[in-house]
Amino acid sequence: MVKIETFSVEAWMDQHETGSQFNIAETCCASISIDQLRELSEDKDRPVFDTSRTLTYGAIRGSDALRNNLARLYSAKSANLLPPENIITTPGAIQANYLCAYALVGPGDHVVCHYPTYQSLYEVPKQLGAEVDLWKAKPENNWIPSIEDLKNLIKPNTKLLILNNPNNPTGAILKKSFLQQIIDVAAEHNIAILSDEVYRPIFHSINPLDPEFPPSILSMGYKKVIATGSMSKAYALAGIRVGWIASRDPEIIEKIAEARHYTTISVSQLDEQVAAYALDPNTVHSLLARNIQLAKTNLALLERFVLKNDDACEWVKPLAGTTAFVRFHRDGKAVDSVDFCKKLLEKSGVLFVPGSECFGGEYKGYVRVGFVNHVDIVKAGMDEVTKFVRRNLDDVKLAE
């Protein structure tokens, strides 16, 4: 029997999400409806669905419309165009990441995973029998891990290096020159790189003209790379359950396609039509502009909260994505983040995610904040957190 560890962050959300008044734990940009999506389009007369289409399994590897739109986005500002055939659609990015591990690693293999990160990125390779080492980032280095540490983790049987860029939960990014150093290490040892880019392109605090602006891993010139993404986070459409796998290496794509036959035949035609509509040139720019502006507005609210309560919390300000990792303390001593989050929810209706339970026991006092919800929810919720910190922080246990 496969040993499956509790997926802590999903278990926490499952238990508490529906009972919160102010959900500031959700990692999606505030979700939109089909009607709202149509309003964002420059071609409002074009239907989102073709209701005359027969509902067969559809295109097994993904619809032409969706894969063409994705290929266009990945090929923008790149000298080498990405063929649509190098993209496979999946039911969400979580399935995309699972498939990559399922197809590429197993017993006897070694995997290195960027950390802290979403638990499935390192737990699934473990479940498949691989040995996994965590490449740890630290707050004192702005949540950027060390290249020397990476080199020291490489083994003769290292098969896969897993990145999460932009990062969940910290909101940190691996910038262009740093990505090149990672690729140099991987290329030297012929290691494949899987980059979970599900929070791309929500870059709210770095200018796209910055020479260190991070491109997709697919644009860095190394063939043995895989990028995964989805419609859930950056595109505010979690409800359609569409993700994807893209690679420069056709052999990797074929291997994953073979594995995919055992897990899902195809993705819902209806879901793919919505995704293709959202990523169409008539829609995608307005959709991303809406979500990036939402991130900027709410990040300013969160930054004001941290400044106002700097005697009780600290952070490394995120540069991208939808999450921040905030450390709460009392007289410099980290609070018990689980007790903090439970009491906060009980007293104020605000939902955060406890870092020590959901991202690793070493993250004492840390909570993950998902700040790209609707502005009124974030503003009212953070006001409630301020009241809680002032009135109830002394009642929260300290971390052991």
Rank of each mutant, 00 (worst) to 15 (best):
Pro83Arg: 04
Gly243Arg: 10
Asp196Lys: 11
Cys341Lys: 00
Val284Trp: 13
Ala103Ser: 14
Ser337Lys: 09
Arg248Ile: 04
Asp43Cys: 00
Ala334Asn: 05
Glu254Phe: 02
Phe352Trp: 14
Ala246Pro: 06
Gly19Leu: 08
Ile191Arg: 13
Lys308Phe: 01
Ile245Leu: 14
Arg260Phe: 05
Leu82Val: 12
Phe352His: 06
Ala172Met: 01
Trp143Phe: 03
Gly365Cys: 01
Pro83Met: 04
Pro215Thr: 08
Val124Trp: 15
Ser232His: 14
Ala93Asn: 15
Ile252Lys: 01
Ile144Phe: 02
Lys397His: 14
Val274Arg: 12
Pro145Glu: 08
Ser20Phe: 00
Asp196Val: 13
Ala300Asp: 13
Asn157Phe: 02
Lys77Leu: 09
Gln181Tyr: 09
Gln180Leu: 07
Ala295Pro: 02
Ala259Ile: 05
Ala236Ile: 11
Leu319Phe: 12
Arg260Cys: 08
Ser356Arg: 04
Pro281Ile: 12
Val132Lys: 08
Glu258Trp: 04
Asp271Gln: 06
Asn23Val: 03
Ser219Asn: 11
Leu82Ile: 05
Ile256Thr: 07
Gln180Asn: 10
His374Ile: 02
Val105Asp: 05
Arg368Gln: 12
Glu272Trp: 08
Arg330Val: 06
Ser219Thr: 03
Thr6Pro: 12
Arg290His: 04
Arg38Pro: 05
Arg53Trp: 01
Cys28Lys: 00
Asp310Gln: 11
Val274Trp: 08
Ala192Thr: 14
Leu194Cys: 03
Asp50Asn: 08
Ile240Asp: 10
Gln127Arg: 13
Ala276Lys: 05
Asp109Leu: 03
Ala380His: 03
Asp310Glu: 13
Trp135Tyr: 13
Asp376Phe: 05
Gly62Pro: 05
Pro47Gln: 12
Phe359Gln: 00
Phe7Ser: 04
Pro125Lys: 13
Phe388Asn: 10
Asn142Thr: 07
Asp383Arg: 04
Ala399Leu: 05
Gly243Thr: 10
Cys341Phe: 02
Thr264Leu: 01
Leu163Asn: 07
Ile253Asp: 01
Gly243Gln: 05
Lys308His: 08
Ile182Lys: 14
Gly229Asn: 10
Pro318Asn: 09
Asp310Asn: 15
Tyr115Cys: 00
Arg38Thr: 12
Arg368Lys: 15
Asn80Ser: 12
Ser20Trp: 02
His110Cys: 11
Gln21Thr: 10
Ala65Thr: 08
Ser356Glu: 13
Ile182Met: 08
Gln273His: 10
Ala65Gly: 06
Lys387Arg: 14
Gln181Trp: 00
Cys100Gly: 06
Gly62Ala: 03
Gln180Ser: 00
Thr297Glu: 03
Ile206Tyr: 05
Leu121Asn: 06
Glu212Asn: 14
Pro156Ile: 11
Arg260Met: 06
Ala96Met: 09
Arg61Trp: 07
Ile245Pro: 07
Ser266Pro: 07
Ala101Thr: 09
Ala65Trp: 11
Ser8Pro: 01
Ser230Glu: 07
Ala11Asp: 06
Leu150Tyr: 07
Gly58Tyr: 07
Ser63Cys: 03
Glu39Tyr: 06
Glu5Asp: 13
Asp184Arg: 13
